[in-house]
């Protein structure tokens, strides 16, 4: 199936950037895992979890990481693999070894606070979806008949956006998306801390994923009725104007979502919105 080097290696060398907890110093650790055909980064991490011993024979704690579906639809297992942010489930060992036969390098995402090892806190990413009101505000969940009819063309235009799994690759690759790591103060309750976090996140860049979701719901025949609210959110501080057009987002998106198209549309909508608002004064 997948082209494999003629002689498969006996072992895979894996270098992992570890960190015991937030705010702690990070450090590299090297592991050696017996090679098996058809491995991916997840199965490598599973082998490490089953036998957490470094390449030089030291017993250590297992590497913590996040994953769930293992078929690249849940968005959980994002990490930086060989320098590239991606889903670790679809990072196949044979391919990675073609890139670099010496080792596989695993690091946590760079734009989110590390919780432990390869686990990061991506709550900011979901907060952005609240900011842009990424939903259809239906009247009720009672039986009101079918939704509006839509052309197959309209469906085909929306569908790619609806595949966004909130993995955060686009954010990690975006030069304008800066890491924010807040620490709960001793005198702060959980609720107060959450509110401070939300306020800080809201002032900073929402990110391409949220812009694309705003566009998705503005395309929806019902969602359209609240298009202004979403565009308003995109013109606020941290909105679409922050985008520096590096276009990294679209190149790392595992679902090939046309993020830059969405950003361009959002930019135009924001301009129109601002002019309209100026006239409405």
């Amino acid at each position: 199936m997948i082209s494999r080097s003629k002689t498969s290696p006996e072992h895979v060398e894996v270098r992992v950037l570890r960190q015991a907890a937030p705010q702690q110093r990070s450090y590299w650790e090297r592991f050696r895992v017996a090679y098996e055909p058809d491995m991916n980064v997840i199965s490598v991490l599973q082998r490490i979890a089953a036998r957490p011993r470094t390449a030089d024979g030291q017993d250590v704690t297992p590497v913590a990481w996040d994953c769930n579906c293992l078929e690249e639809v849940c968005g959980a297992c994002t990490m930086v693999v060989n320098g590239r942010v991606r889903q670790s489930c679809s990072a196949l060992v044979d391919r990675l070894l073609e890139e670099n036969p010496a080792e596989i390098e695993l690091r946590p995402m760079t734009k989110f606070p590390v919780l432990r090892d390869l686990m990061v806190d991506r709550s900011r990413l979901f907060r952005a979806l609240e900011k842009v009101k990424a939903w259809v505000p239906v009247d009720s969940y009672h039986d009101m008949g079918a939704g509006p009819r839509q052309s197959p063309e309209a469906q085909q235009e929306s569908y790619p956006y609806s595949q966004c799994m909130s993995c955060g690759c686009c954010l990690d690759a975006c030069p304008q998306y800066r890491k924010i790591e807040l620490i709960q103060r001793d005198d702060e309750t959980d609720e107060q801390f959450a509110a401070r976090q939300a306020a800080t996140y809201d002032r900073n860049f929402v990110g391409p994923h949220a812009i694309a979701q705003a566009i998705l719901f503005n395309q929806n025949p019902t969602g359209q009725m609240n298009a202004d609210e979403r565009v308003e959110a995109l013109t606020a501080p941290g909105g679409v104007q922050v985008c520096g057009n590096a276009q990294n987002c679209v190149s790392v998106c595992p679902k090939e979502i046309p993020l830059t198209t969405a950003i361009a549309q959002a930019g135009r909508a924001a301009t129109v919105h601002s002019i309209k608002r100026w006239f409405d004064r």
Partner: peptide, 10 residues
């Protein structure tokens, strides 16, 4: 459908 699921269309 009302909640915006992008079902394929005829």
């Amino acid at each position: 459908d009302r909640l915006g699921v992008t079902f394929n269309r005829t």
